[in-house]
Simulated assay, not measured.
Amino acid sequence: MVYGKPLFDCAGAQIHAVCRQLATVVSINGVVDDTNIERVTAFVRRFVLAEKGFVLDLSGVTSFSPQGVSLLYGVDESCFATEVEWALITSAAVEDALGGVAAGFPVAASVPDALHRFAAGIDERRRLLPLLTKKTA
């Protein structure tokens, strides 16, 4: 374990969460399968915070069971309930297991790409805010 960067080990999946200015980034490395999917999902969903984007980085996942899609639906549900934008970064193993289902989720190429999208969304809202609040005389 690295000081200041706690790692949660969940039966083959290593989970690391970092709260950044634009979003909370949860990275998973290793294996996500039937033996750990419920614990992984519960742990990951704890990090979906109101008013802060969420990035689920699965780029380090080496094996992903088809039942792993429940993790993605769980994150999607939590983000919808808290009204936050989210992004998914996949690995080849995740893409293979999902077989096209990932297309229904907000996929980004990388964590920096996801954070850039969140920043662009904030900039757009800031640009439009004066137009929306301007009173007509």
Rank of each mutant, 00 (worst) to 15 (best):
N36T: 04
A17V: 13
V69Q: 04
E85W: 12
A103D: 14
L22I: 10
L132T: 03
S63Y: 13
F105L: 15
R126G: 11
Q67E: 10
R125H: 07
L22R: 09
T41V: 12
F64C: 00
R46H: 07
E51C: 10
S65P: 01
A102G: 05
A97V: 12
V101T: 12
D123Q: 13
G12E: 07
M1P: 13
K52T: 14
A97H: 01
A87E: 07
A23I: 13
E38T: 08
G4Q: 02
F54Q: 02
E85V: 15
E83H: 06
R117E: 14
L56N: 00
V107C: 14
I15C: 11
T82G: 07
A81Q: 11
F8R: 00
P112R: 05
Q21Y: 09
I89Q: 03
T62R: 05
Y73A: 05
S110I: 06
R20Q: 09
L128Q: 12
A120F: 11
A97W: 03
S59F: 07
G53E: 03
T90D: 10
S110L: 04
A17H: 01
Y73N: 03
V31I: 12
L7C: 09
L88F: 11
L88V: 13
G30R: 03
E38A: 08
V48Y: 01
L49M: 05
A87T: 00
L49D: 06
T62N: 06
P106K: 01
C10E: 06
F47E: 07
P112I: 09
L128Y: 11
D123Y: 05
L129W: 15
G68E: 05
L131C: 14
A23H: 04
F47L: 07
L49I: 14
D57I: 04
K135F: 11
A97Y: 04
L71P: 02
P112F: 13
T41A: 12
V44C: 03
E95H: 00
L58E: 02
V32D: 00
H16D: 13
L71K: 00
A137R: 08
L58P: 01
D113R: 07
C79A: 09
L58T: 06
S63G: 03
E77P: 02
V75C: 10
V25G: 03
S65D: 13
Q21G: 01
A42Y: 01
V31M: 03
S70H: 02
V69F: 03
R127Y: 13
T24L: 11
